[in-house]
């Protein structure tokens, strides 16, 4: 596909290594597996008493968040610090751009501070691509979520979780449930699950929250949660933004929970050893029952820990791809 070729021409160096990390679409299984392996080694390291490695020593990482985030930003910060980088957190939403500065100007100003890596979250799809195309050569861009397009580090940490707890992707049936339409996480998960050869990927939700043409990404579409959960190994619940009611995507939280909320009874339709994941933050009683979120099949807190390791993997690989090209 065009998109894969295009994205890779931006995010890979001439030796096929990561130099930016913008999208999972188009990355091959070998590279994805390398990310998973690297992340795994950092997971093991975080169990040790000394948690720091010098891979990014002397480098400056700027967390450039145009949208609010607690979890993603703090795990990126922690990841950068464990790689021995200096970290600057910038909450841009409340500063420059609200005074009319363009994204390009903001970027050029920050570059003048001689940063080596930008971790970018922005509400516009394609923002990370845009920045990667306009940034000084040698500076790595990590996409921490752009609009509805991609959230590649989240999807990779989900894959770390699945591989550590379920193993071989080819045997797995995965259901992604909820607001697929607005979800960058779902899009990235679908790409990576398919490239890693997952047995079946299902998306479950009402038509108002399922994008048209989603089946072209290689998923099975289910409108009924019971049908969608039957015999799956992995259930991924997505966060439901409460403002979806006001904009007529849904009648009410109550009706959504009744039809698409993950309760214990519903979870029983999945395989007995199925795992439950959620990118967080969770809405208890909106998309997931508390007992399920806190239950023994839930991976939600483990995901956060793997998030640090996965981000360390991606950041160190992109920085290395920038210096070897």
């Amino acid at each position: 596909m065009n998109q894969s070729r295009y994205a890779n021409s931006v995010q890979l160096n001439d030796q096929g290594q990561l130099r930016h990390f913008l999208t999972l679409e188009g990355l091959d299984r070998e590279l994805l597996t390398e990310i998973l392996n690297t992340a795994d080694s950092f997971v093991d390291m975080s169990a040790q008493s000394v948690k720091k490695v010098p891979l990014l020593r002397g480098k400056t990482v700027v967390n450039l968040f145009f949208e609010n985030s607690t979890r993603t930003r703090s795990t990126f910060e922690l990841a950068a610090k464990r790689l021995s980088a200096d970290v600057l957190n910038l909450d841009i939403k409340s500063s420059a751009t609200s005074k009319g500065e363009t994204l390009r100007d903001t970027l050029w100003n920050l570059q003048a501070m001689a940063s080596d890596m930008f971790v970018v979250r922005h509400s516009d799809s394609g923002a990370a691509h845009f920045i990667a195309e306009h940034v000084t050569p040698g500076v790595a861009i990590i996409n921490a979520g752009d609009g509805r397009h991609a959230h590649p580090t989240q999807a990779m940490l989900d894959m770390v979780t699945i591989r550590r707890h379920k193993g071989d992707f080819s045997q797995l049936k995965v259901a992604i449930v909820g607001d697929i339409l607005h979800s960058r996480v779902a899009r990235s998960q679908i790409h990576v699950l398919n490239t890693l050869g997952a047995g079946e990927v299902r998306v479950v939700g009402p038509k108002t929250l399922l994008p048209k043409y989603i089946e072209t990404l290689g998923v099975t579409v289910c409108y009924d949660l019971d049908e969608g959960l039957r015999d799956v190994d992995v259930v991924i619940m997505l966060r439901l933004q409460t403002e979806r009611m006001a904009s007529a995507f849904l009648p009410s939280q109550g009706e959504f929970y009744k039809l698409y909320g993950l309760s214990r009874e519903r979870l029983a339709l999945a395989k007995p050893d199925a795992i439950v994941m959620h990118p967080g933050p969770i809405n208890r009683g909106v998309e997931i029952e508390s007992e399920v979120a806190d239950g023994c099949q839930s991976m939600i807190l483990k995901q956060v820990g793997y998030g640090v390791a996965t981000r360390m993997a991606v950041m160190s690989m992109a920085m290395s791809g920038q210096t070897t090209q």
Binding site: Q3, G126, G147, R148, H149, K212, Y213, I214
Partner: peptide
């Protein structure tokens, strides 16, 4: 355009 490309790119159709 509200088609497969916009869906993949996450652009509002």
């Amino acid at each position: 355009h509200d088609g497969a490309t916009a869906m993949r790119l996450g652009l509002e159709g």
